[in-house]
Nucleic acid binder design. Structure first.
Length: 568
RNA sequence: CGGGAUGUAGCACAGCUUGGUAGUGCGCUCGGUUCGGGACCGAGAGGUCGCAGGUUCAAAUCCUGCCAUCCCGACCA
C-alpha cells in the first residue's frame, strides 16, 4: 500500500508554536497538514487519506438516503447572488473579483443559488419531484478570523445537499432522511455528537438543527440540561423562575449624580453596586416604533426573544438620536421609570427590588427602583440570553453552557431561494408554484479535526478505524536485520493480499523513533517486528487505541499465507 | 474590524535592555560504533535576522512605516 520511505510523512518532534488546539498541533505534528497562509492548508498523503475516508462515508450514506451526487461550479457569476439578495448580505466574507471582460464573479461560499438555478431550469412538473442532490467540493469564505488549524479556514471542503419537494410534507420526509443519514455518518466516523436546535440565521428558512460536538476549541456555545434539553445559545430558552415576590421596597426612587458614567460597569465600579442589582434599559425600534427592553445589569438582551415577546416582525437597536427622542436623555441614562414608550421586562427584572437604573436625564441615575411600584412593563418574559445556572425550560434542573463545534447543519429552507432565484413547477392542479427546499451541510475538514479532538492522547492521534489513513502499520524495528526485513516484506505482501490498507515503516530509524511516530500518526493496529520475537517465530500486534498487545505465531518457512491476523 | 502578542536555519528558541556584522537544541549530510520506546563519537552543510526606509563609522539590536502569523473579542455557513 505504502512504504514510509517512499512517501511524505513529515512528523514533527517540536510542537509548532502557532498551534493551540489539540487537533491543530497533532495534525501538524503527524504530518497530515501544512499551512500555506492563514486559514489555507495543504493536505499531505496521510491527511488526504483521512479526507478520502470521510468522503467515502459521506457518499455511501448520501446515496443510501436517495441523494444523487453532482459537481457544481466554484466560480459563480455575481448576478446570481444579486438575484437571491445575498450579494450584500455576504459582506466582506465573499471573495469577489472581475475577469478580463469586467464580469464579476464570486468564489462559491455555498451553493443554494447555483443549485436552485440548476434545478429550477430542469424541473417542470410535480412529477419531477422530489429530488435531492449533493456535492462535495471546496468552498471559499474570506473569514475574518481563521481559527484552530483546520477547524475554521478560508477554503474548506463541504458536503452540501439540497432537497426539492412539491409540498411541506415532502420536505419533512426529505429532511428526516437527511437527519437520519447525518446520524449514521457521524456515528460511523466515531464522533460523539448531539443534535441541537439552531437559528437558521443568514440562510433563511424556518427550522434548522445543528450537529454539535463538545470540544474546548469549538466556536459555538450550547446550553444543555440534565434532562436532555440542548439548544444553541442563540435560541436557548429558560424556565420561568419561581415567582418569588420582590422584597418589599424600602424607599422611594431617588435621583443621584453619575457624571459621564454610562455603562453598567462604570456605575457598578464607581458606586460598588453589583450589576445584578441594576436594570439595563436598551431602546429598540420594533416595526418602526420605539420600545425599551429591560434586563438585569449582568445579562444581554436576546433580540430574537424580544422580538417574539413584542410580537414585532422586525427589530433593531435604536440609534443615538432615537434614544434621545424616546427617553429625553443621551445614550447611557435610559431607565424604565416614567418612560412613555412601552417597556418589556425580563422575568429577572420583576424580581428586583431597590434596583439602580437610568433616570432618563443626562448624568443621572435612579436608585431604589422596583418593578410594579415604580413602572409597569407592557409584558414580561424570557428576553435575554441564557446563562450558566439558569432553570432549564422544562423546569427540571439547571442549564449548563458548553463550548461546542458544529460539524453539520440541516435546514428547512422553504421557498426562500426557489422564489428569489426561481425554481417553479406545475402542481397537480396546473398551478405554477415554487419548490420547497431543504439544505444540509457537513464540513469535511472540520470532521477530521473533530475526530482528532475526540480521539487522542499525550502521544498522538488514536484514529477510529473508519477514518484511519491506514488499517495497519508495520514497524520493522531493525531495518538492517535480514530476518526482520524479509518478514516485514512477507507480512506487507500478505496483508495487502488480504485487502488491508497497510503502511510499512521501512525507514532506517531507531526503534524509539518508529514507536513514537507510530503512536503519533495513530494507525489503529501496529505490527511490531523485532529480532528476539522473530527468532522464536513470533510477532507482536498492538492496538493503538487500547495499548493492548498480543503475540502471534508465524511460521515463516511456510510462506506468508501461513498465519492470519485477527482484529482485537 | 478592535485589543494583545510574535516574526532570527526545516522545527523550537537564545541574542535585542547596554549597536561592533549571528548562536543553541532537535532535524539534515558524511564516517564510525550502536539498534525493543525520540542513541553516541567525530566531521560538515544550512540564515536576505519578516520587508522597506531612517539614525550611525557600524543595526538582528535604536527610530518610522508596512507586511505576515497566532490569541481574545466583534462577525459568521
Amino acid at each position: 500500500m505504502m512504504r514510509w520511505s517512499q512517501t511524505l510523512i513529515p512528523t514533527l518532534r517540536n510542537i509548532p508554536k502557532d498551534a493551540e488546539a489539540a487537533s491543530h498541533k497533532l495534525a501538524l505534528r503527524a504530518g497530515l497538514i501544512r499551512q500555506l497562509a492563514s486559514g489555507v492548508y495543504s493536505y499531505l498523503p496521510l491527511g488526504f487519506r483521512v479526507l478520502h475516508k470521510i468522503i467515502h462515508i459521506l457518499r455511501e450514506e448520501m446515496n443510501r438516503a436517495g441523494a444523487s451526487e453532482v459537481l457544481l461550479p466554484a466560480l459563480h457569476p455575481a448576478e446570481i447572488w444579486r438575484k437571491s439578495g445575498r450579494f450584500e448580505a455576504l459582506g466582506a466574507d465573499k471573495i469577489v473579483f472581475k475577469n478580463r471582460a469586467g464580469n464579476e464573479f464570486v468564489l462559491g461560499p455555498t451553493h443554494e443559488e447555483v443549485i436552485t438555478e440548476l434545478v429550477g431550469g430542469s424541473i417542470k412538473s410535480f412529477r419531477d419531484l422530489p429530488v435531492t442532490l449533493y456535492q462535495i467540493q471546496t468552498k471559499f469564505r474570506d473569514e475574518a478570523r481563521p481559527r484552530f488549524g483546520v477547524i475554521r479556514t478560508k477554503e474548506f471542503i463541504m458536503k452540501d445537499a439540497y432537497s426539492f419537494d412539491a409540498d411541506e410534507g415532502g420536505l419533512d420526509r426529505s429532511y428526516q432522511k437527511m437527519a437520519e443519514a447525518y446520524t449514521r455518518i457521524f456515528t460511523r466516523c466515531g464522533i460523539s455528537f448531539q443534535i441541537v436546535k439552531a437559528d437558521p440565521g443568514l440562510m433563511g428558512g424556518n427550522m434548522s438543527q445543528e450537529f454539535m460536538v463538545e470540544c474546548p476549541y469549538g466556536e459555538d456555545r450550547v446550553a444543555k440540561s440534565e434532562s436532555g434539553y440542548m439548544a444553541s445559545l442563540d435560541i436557548a430558552e429558560r424556565g420561568k423562575p419561581d415567582s418569588k415576590p420582590p422584597a418589599p421596597p424600602s424607599a422611594k426612587p431617588e435621583i443621584f449624580d453619575t457624571p459621564h458614567l454610562r455603562t453598567i460597569e462604570e456605575i457598578a465600579h464607581r458606586f460598588k453596586i453589583k450589576p445584578s442589582q441594576m436594570i439595563k434599559t436598551i431602546v429598540y425600534i420594533a416595526d418602526g416604533k420605539p420600545a425599551a427592553a429591560l434586563v438585569m445589569g449582568d445579562s444581554e438582551v436576546n433580540e430574537g426573544k424580544l422580538r417574539r415577546l413584542i410580537g414585532a416582525s422586525e427589530i433593531r437597536q435604536a440609534a443615538a438620536k432615537e434614544i434621545q427622542e424616546a427617553t429625553g436623555a443621551p445614550v447611557g441614562f435610559a431607565g424604565p421609570v416614567g418612560l412613555s414608550i412601552p417597556v418589556y421586562a425580563d422575568w429577572d427584572v420583576l424580581a428586583l427590588a431597590d434596583a439602580v437604573t437610568g433616570a432618563n436625564q443626562q448624568d443621572k441615575h435612579l436608585k431604589n427602583v422596583s418593578a410594579g411600584r415604580d413602572f409597569k412593563p407592557a409584558a414580561a418574559g424570557d428576553i435575554r440570553y441564557v446563562k450558566e445556572g439558569d432553570l432549564a425550560p422544562d423546569g427540571k434542573g439547571k442549564l449548563k453552557l458548553v463550548t461546542a463545534m458544529e460539524i453539520g447543519h440541516i435546514f428547512k429552507l422553504g421557498t426562500r431561494y426557489s422564489k428569489s432565484v426561481g425554481a417553479d413547477f406545475l402542481d397537480a392542479k396546473g398551478e405554477r408554484v415554487p419548490a420547497i427546499m431543504g439544505c444540509y451541510g457537513i464540513g469535511v475538514n472540520r470532521l477530521l479535526a473533530a475526530a482528532i479532538e475526540e480521539h487522542h492522547d499525550e502521544k498522538g492521534i488514536k484514529w477510529p478505524a473508519s477514518l484511519a489513513p491506514f488499517d495497519i502499520e508495520i514497524i520493522a524495528l531493525n531495518q538492517s536485520d535480514p530476518l526482520t526485513r524479509e518478514t516485514a516484506e512477507k507480512i506487507y505482501a500478505y496483508l495487502q493480499a488480504q485487502g488491508r490498507e497497510v503502511l510499512y515503516d521501512d525507514r532506517d530509524e531507531r526503534a524509539g523513533v518508529k514507536f513514537n511516530d507510530a503512536d503519533l500518526i495513530g494507525i489503529p493496529q501496529q505490527i511490531i517486528l523485532g529480532e528476539r520475537n522473530l527468532k522464536e517465530g513470533k510477532i507482536e500486534v498492538k492496538s493503538r487505541r487500547t495499548g493492548e498487545t498480543r503475540i502471534l505465531n508465524v511460521d515463516l518457512s511456510a510462506g506468508p499465507a501461513s498465519f492470519s491476523l485477527q482484529d482485537f
